[in-house]
Design a protein around this nucleic acid. Structure first.
Lengths: 196, 196
DNA sequence: CAAAAAAGTTGAACCAGTTCAACGTTTTTT
DNA sequence: AAAAAACGTTGAACTGGTTCAACTTTTTTG
């Protein structure tokens, strides 16, 4: 992940495309640059795009009744992000999607994605594969939230996605893990004490 | 859902198949009958199949350190069930999948599913669509677990999937919702009192 | 670089949900 | 039909994590 990723390299990890296909696939995406704190998706508007992060960091969150924000998804280089319930079913979003750093993204519209999938079997396969991975990832997240303590969930994030913990502020990590920023602060303090 | 569903009717909701395709698709599935409390998948074994419920009720759960079981998935007629992290990546399972009622299922093996997807564009599209729906469903579950109280989560289940609440014992529903069976008992008691 | 805004820390009181143990009820098995 | 097993309920003590408010540190902005 050191060099800036490309959608061409990414798609090739899943399906074998020739140069022409690769160019055609890539042409459906449009590069967009966003500043820190800029919104890509807002509640009540339909999410027209999904985004692939080339550079930067983006989060998706919902604001609950009590005004707390709960982070639903994190994305850095080579991750996808959107409000999937809004994007896939083209219904009003419930999430904010916001840049946490100045970021460069590739966006694809719902319609262009449909055309892409209809135009080439391999593209369909690609989107099937990333959907399967997303479902499996989400299922792991459900499992950890049901079975692990706040501290264990934090440890797991650090172990499996150390990069995430560095790129996002602590209150974002805390809300992603389903705890308050104060409690995460206490967990980290305790680790410092016991580890030196 | 009154009459027993069929995989033919189900797949037609997503893609338009002619009679020959329909028969070919259906032939990849094998009907299996299981008795109440029988296991379909167990931890440490690779999940070789995914299952489509024709009749009955099935649950997937993980057993945590403290011996509590946490329900990850519920399935009744026309729902799919498996340990997706095991099935999709063909790695050892972490879940039990167990029949809660005597059930009739259609099973498809990982290899047959791969062959199916490779043999016809429309089958690939079908599996892409159900994977997307699974991802969106799981994301909604993450949202509710992050943003709602135990009582609100129960209310939402009753509202959106009333059938589920009737078909599964209360301790299964409780563990699916991320609370103890005792606490769900108290929630229900309180509702009885206030509603009559 | 000063001021303001955002992010992180700490203590003390609090509470939503858990735990444990005992008991009642329903379902399954023989 | 009796016994056993599974499921559900209740009370009382408890705890993992929250809340609130005040404060410190870091980052952003003019």
């Amino acid at each position: 992940m050191q060099p800036t990723p490309s959608i061409e390299n990414y798609v090739r990890k899943y399906v074998d495309l020739n140069d022409e296909e690769l160019a055609h696939f890539a042409s459906a995406f449009k590069e967009v640059k966003v500043k820190k704190r800029q919104f890509l998706i807002q509640p009540n508007f339909v999410a027209r795009h999904r985004y692939f992060v080339l550079k930067g960091a983006v989060r998706a969150y919902v604001v609950a009744e009590d005004d707390q924000d709960n982070t639903i998804q994190l994305a850095i280089e080579e991750w996808w992000i959107s409000d999937y319930n809004s994007y896939m079913f083209q219904q009003p979003a419930s999430m904010f999607v916001m840049a946490v750093e100045d970021s460069t993204l590739l966006q694809i519209s719902f319609e262009d994605e449909q055309r892409l999938k209809a135009s080439n079997y391999k593209y369909e396969t690609f989107f099937r594969m990333i959907a399967e991975r997303a479902a499996a990832f989400m299922q792991r997240r459900v499992i950890t939230s049901l079975t692990m303590s706040a501290e264990q969930r934090y440890d797991l994030l650090i172990e499996k996605y150390p990069e995430m913990a560095n790129r996002f502020p602590q209150y974002v990590i805390a809300s992603y893990l389903g705890m308050t920023t104060e409690f995460l602060s206490r967990i980290r303090k305790q680790k410092l004490r016991s580890k030196g």
